[in-house]
């Protein structure tokens, strides 16, 4: 992997610092008067999610990180291990429950997720923004109550608990926003 000079610095750049992959989430170019240029950057660690504040002087370089994003299909879960397959190469990748984080709540077999590889090892997985899940169990729906602001918990097919409106019944399909974990709408079969 090569390196990036300060003039390549921009939001979204993936770099390696002390062996860890980072994504540049902010880069501000400052140059006081006739002085030297400084690049004030915020970098998010792609393994730990911590944010680093770093300032670079014009002319410094950062190592490029071998970070790629692939489309990966969820195959199955085996205990604490989630198995995915690269849709193009058919290569299989395993993620731990810790790496999948809250993602397990939305994972259905054959679902295509976005996966980030660092040095060809999977590090994170992001499900699609919206997923449709079947309600496995909830209290009976309150007939006539179409208000969406009255909510109740329901258990969906993945085993996760989602807050849904009171009118939802068992076996119905609901659309959930995976970024917020919130109910979006009821889906007709």
């Amino acid at each position: 992997m090569g390196s990036y000079g300060t003039s390549d610095f921009r939001k979204g750049l993936k770099v390696q610092i002390d062996g860890d992959p980072y994504i540049m989430i902010e880069c501000n170019f400052v140059k006081p008067g006739k002085g030297n240029a400084f690049y004030k950057c915020k970098l998010r660690n792609l393994l730990r999610n911590t944010v680093l504040d770093r300032t670079y002087k014009g002319g410094e370089t950062l190592e490029q990180a071998d970070v790629v994003e692939i489309a990966a299909q969820f195959l199955y879960r085996q205990g604490e291990t989630f198995v995915f397959m690269d849709n193009e190469s058919y290569e299989q990748y395993e993620l731990s429950a810790e790496q999948v984080d809250d993602g397990w709540k939305y994972l259905k077999e054959t679902m295509v997720c976005s996966m980030v590889l660092f040095n060809n090892n999977p590090i994170t997985m992001t499900p699609p923004n919206h997923v449709v899940l079947r309600v496995e169990y909830c209290e009976p729906g309150a007939k006539g109550n179409t208000a969406t602001n009255v909510t109740k918990p329901c258990r969906v097919e993945t085993g996760a608990e989602i807050q849904c409106p009171a009118f939802i019944n068992m076996e119905e399909l609901i659309k959930v926003d995976t970024r917020t974990g919130e109910y979006v709408e009821r889906v007709k079969e």
């Binding site: 400052v30 140059k31 006081p32 008067g33 002085g35 030297n36 400084f38 004030k40 504040d53 770093r54 300032t55 670079y56 002087k57 002319g59 410094e60």
Partner: peptide
Amino acid sequence: IAIPDSIGSDRNDWLNLLLA
């Protein structure tokens, strides 16, 4: 302040960093 690794010992570089 996040100090650039390459800042060295040039007084003006330090003045500019503090100024900025």
